[in-house]
Amino acid sequence: MTTTLLAYPFRLFFLLVGLYGVAIVLAWTGFLFGGLALPVGWSPLHWHSHEMLFGFTSAAVAGFILTAVCNWTGAPPLQGGKLLLLGLVWSLGRVAMWSAGYLPLWLVALLDMLFLPALGVILLRILLAYGNKRNLLLGGMILALSAANLLMHIGFITGKQGWLVQGETLAMNLITLIMLVIGGRIIPMFSANWWRNQGINVQPRVIPALDKACLLITALLIPAAFAGLPWLTGGIALAAAVLNAWRWLGWRGWRTWSEPLLWVLHIGYGWLVIALLLKGLAAFALVGASAWQHALGAGAMGTLILGVMTRVALGHTGRPLQLPPLAWLIYVGICVAAVCRMAAALGWTDYRLGVMFAAAGWCFAFSLFTVIYWPILSRPRLDGRPG
C-alpha cells in the first residue's frame, strides 16, 4: 500500500486533505464550543484561518497541480522517496503549527514555510524543463502564497494584527485566482466531454476575451487590498462577480444535473461568484467580512476541492468516471456545510447552531471521502498501468 500511495502525488495528498479537513474543523469547533485548549501560542482565530489556507488547501493544490503537470508536459510524476519527502515537509509544518505554544515562533515560521516554496520550485522546474510557459502563472501564484504565509507569520511573531490580515487577504485572493484558472479549464472541458459521450448536443460557451477579463479583474483585488481603499476593493469585487457570473452561466451547468461529478464543480464555481459578490458588499459595509470569507472557504474551496478529488481519483486510477455507491452523500455534506456556514455568517440563523451544523456537514463530507476513497487511492490502478 505504501508503494502505491507514493506512485502519484494525488494519492498521498488527497488522503492528507481528507484527514486534515476533518481534524482542523473538529479542533476549531472543539475550541469554540467545547473548551478545547489549542496549544497554538497566538490568535486562535487566525491560527484556524492559517491552517485552512496553508495547511488544508495547500495540500489539495499540491495533489492536483503535481498530477496535472504530468498531463500538461508529459513529465513523469513526482513519486517514491521524493514524494514522501514533500509529504513529510507538509506534515512537519502541521506539527509546528499545532505545537506553536511550545516552540519559538521563528522556528514555527521556518518549519511551516518550507512546503510552499518547495512545491513552487518543483512545479516551475518541470514547466521550464518541458517548455510549458502557459502554466508558469500557476507556479508564480504558489510562490506568492509563500509570501502571504510569511506575512501571517510576521504578524504572529510581532503581535501586529495588520500583518495577519494582509497575509490572510492575500492568500484568499490568490486561492481565488487559482480556482478561477483551474475551474475555467476543467469545468467546461469535462462538461463538453460528458455531453458528447451522452450524445447531447450542447456545448459550453467559452469566450477567451471574457476568460482573460475575469482573470485580470480578479487579480486586481490583490493590489487593491494593499491600497487600503474599501470603495476600490468593493468596486473591483463587484465587477469580478458580474464577469465571473457571465462566464459561469455560459458553461450551462444546469444541463449536467444528472451527473454529480459535474454539477458539484459547477456549484463550486457558483460559490466563487457568491464570494466575490459578498466581498464587494462587505467593502461597502452592507454585510460582514466573514460572509465572503466563508462563501470562499466552506463554499468554493470545500466544494471544488471535493469535486476535483472525487473525479481525479477515479480517472487517474483507471476507474470509470462514476461515483462509488453512497459517494454522492459527500456532496450533500459539503453543500449543507456551505449553506449553514453562510447562514450563520449573515445572521440568518443562530450563530452557534449554524456553525455546528456547518462543521457536522464538513466533517461528514471529508470523513466519507476518506473512507470511500482510501481503498481507491491506496490500491493499484484497475487497468494495470503504472501510477
Rank of each mutant, 00 (worst) to 15 (best):
G270A: 03
L170D: 00
I175E: 05
G253W: 04
I142V: 15
G93H: 03
F156V: 13
H153L: 05
M189I: 13
R381V: 09
P208W: 11
D350M: 10
P320G: 04
F33G: 07
T303N: 02
G139P: 04
A144H: 06
Y130S: 09
P324Q: 07
S191N: 04
N197R: 14
D383I: 07
L145A: 06
T256Q: 10
V121S: 09
T370D: 05
P223D: 11
W231C: 07
C335K: 06
L114M: 15
A227C: 07
A359K: 03
P44T: 13
P320A: 08
A285C: 09
L261T: 02
M356V: 15
W28S: 08
L136V: 15
A289F: 06
L138R: 11
I175K: 01
G268Y: 00
A289W: 02
N197Y: 02
L143S: 10
P188S: 11
A7D: 04
L15W: 06
T3A: 15
L150Y: 12
G299R: 04
V242D: 02
F54Q: 07
L210C: 11
M179H: 08
V95P: 05
V287A: 00
L265A: 05
P223H: 10
G354K: 04
L19P: 00
G55V: 01
F366H: 08
W47H: 06
Y269V: 11
F14C: 00
W194A: 03
I330L: 10
M189V: 13
A224F: 07
L38A: 06
S49D: 11
K82A: 15
W163E: 06
G35D: 02
S99Y: 09
H50P: 01
G268C: 02
L220R: 01
G384Q: 06
P77G: 02
A62W: 14
T73F: 00
R255M: 14
L26T: 05
A345Y: 03
T2A: 15
F10R: 04
A219G: 08
F364K: 04
L111N: 09
L296E: 10
I178D: 02
R205Q: 15
G55M: 02
F284S: 08
G55L: 03
L136W: 14
T57E: 05
L276Q: 01
G315Q: 10
